[in-house]
């Protein structure tokens, strides 16, 4: 057995121009893979639709969400007796159009939810990684800070900060991020502690990887699925927390609106006018469901083993379907796979 060892000279790098189309074709491939997962596609479509709705709210909404009209207050949705097509989802106690408010409400709710989850998540993940990776005293100190802040009532802190600085969208986002990062730190630290013991992490250190590469290349990918799940659960929490703050007058300031604020406001009318609370509530639910469906696809896609399993399963299903259509012959004879 002759073993010609490869030369140690670095080969000339491929020109950067070639990477552009490669990136596009990868995106195309991912798109096709997503299309195979109907629920994931649905989730993705709903997310895109919600984002478009939030961005183009002034073009879509039939009314100004803040325009009041006492004559037409508490009108039910169009399909109920006394309802009219002028206000498809009815009106609230001040005669404001519920549909318009739902469309505009998406802006504040999505913005606050997404930004707070990202900000708190980033901060929590960084601290959790640091604590878990360093261990020892660093770990103890960081986790005690987490404990202290978990024990401290979040709402009290929020009230203090907002009453000093004054309510605004930015303040609310910062304050919610400050009071919600701890759960990420705890989860991440736990996972890092266990992954750090894996032989492949030791292997990475043994071949001479720098610490940053070990963390980002070998440890961080293991956090994707728990963080996705956690982030989505937190998103709901944040939307509701935003509602609570807005209800107290410390969050979104009228005439602006948000789903949470409408849910909170409609609470008093729940027995007379169920639509006030139902439609914004449903919007929150649909958003969370869509994010969940899409995230479930992302989770599988980022795990090579799960991804191959899904691929094989879909192939087998497609083959069986074609076998039934052909009417004769066992499904296993079908060799044509999907691209």
């Amino acid at each position: 057995m002759a073993i010609p060892m490869p030369a140690t000279r670095p080969v000339v790098a491929t020109p950067k121009a070639q990477r552009g189309p490669a990136f596009l074709s990868r995106l195309d491939e991912l798109g096709r893979e997503l299309w195979q997962d109907k629920l994931g596609t649905l989730g993705f479509a709903v997310i895109v639709a919600l984002l478009l709705m939030a961005i183009f709210a002034p073009l879509i909404a039939p009314y100004d969400p803040a325009a009041q009209s006492v004559i037409s207050r508490l009108k039910p949705p169009a399909w109920l007796p006394k309802g009219s097509w002028e206000h498809i989802l009815g009106t609230d106690h001040l005669g404001r159009d519920v549909l318009s408010r739902v469309i505009y409400g998406a802006r504040a709710s999505l913005l606050v939810g997404v930004v707070v989850v990202l900000a708190a998540g980033t901060f929590g993940v960084v601290l959790g990684l640091w604590a878990g990776f360093k261990g020892g005293r660093t770990d103890s100190v960081i986790m005690r800070i987490v404990d202290v802040q978990v024990a401290f009532p979040g709402l009290l802190l929020i009230l203090l900060v907002i009453s000093v600085i004054g309510p605004s969208m930015t303040t609310m986002i910062i304050v919610l991020a400050i009071t919600n990062w701890m759960v990420y730190a705890r989860v991440v630290r736990g996972i890092v502690l266990s992954v750090r013991q894996m032989p492949y992490v030791e292997a990475a250190e043994m071949i001479g990887c720098r610490t940053s590469r070990v963390i980002f290349r070998h440890i961080l990918p293991n956090l994707i699925s728990p963080l996705l799940t956690l982030g989505i659960l937190e998103f709901t929490n944040i939307v509701l927390a935003e509602a609570a703050l807005s209800f107290l007058g410390l969050g979104v300031q009228p005439p602006a609106t948000s789903w949470g604020l409408d849910v909170a406001n409609g609470r008093d009318y729940i027995f007379v006018a169920w639509w006030l609370i139902t439609f914004p509530g449903m919007s929150i639910a649909i958003t969370v469901l869509a994010v969940n469906l899409f995230a479930s696809w992302v989770r599988v896609t980022t795990d090579p083993q799960e991804r191959e399993k899904r691929f094989a399963y879909q192939r087998a299903k497609a083959a069986a379907r074609r076998g039934r259509k052909a009417g004769a012959g066992p499904a296993s004879q079908n060799q044509g796979g999907r691209s």
Partner: peptide, 23 residues
């Protein structure tokens, strides 16, 4: 880190010593 170029380790557990997310 430079020293690692000349000394390497082969692991006991072939299942856990390869990162499952890397080709």
């Amino acid at each position: 880190r430079k020293l690692r170029r000349n000394m390497q380790l082969v692991f006991q557990d072939p299942y856990a010593s390869l990162n499952p997310r890397m080709r």
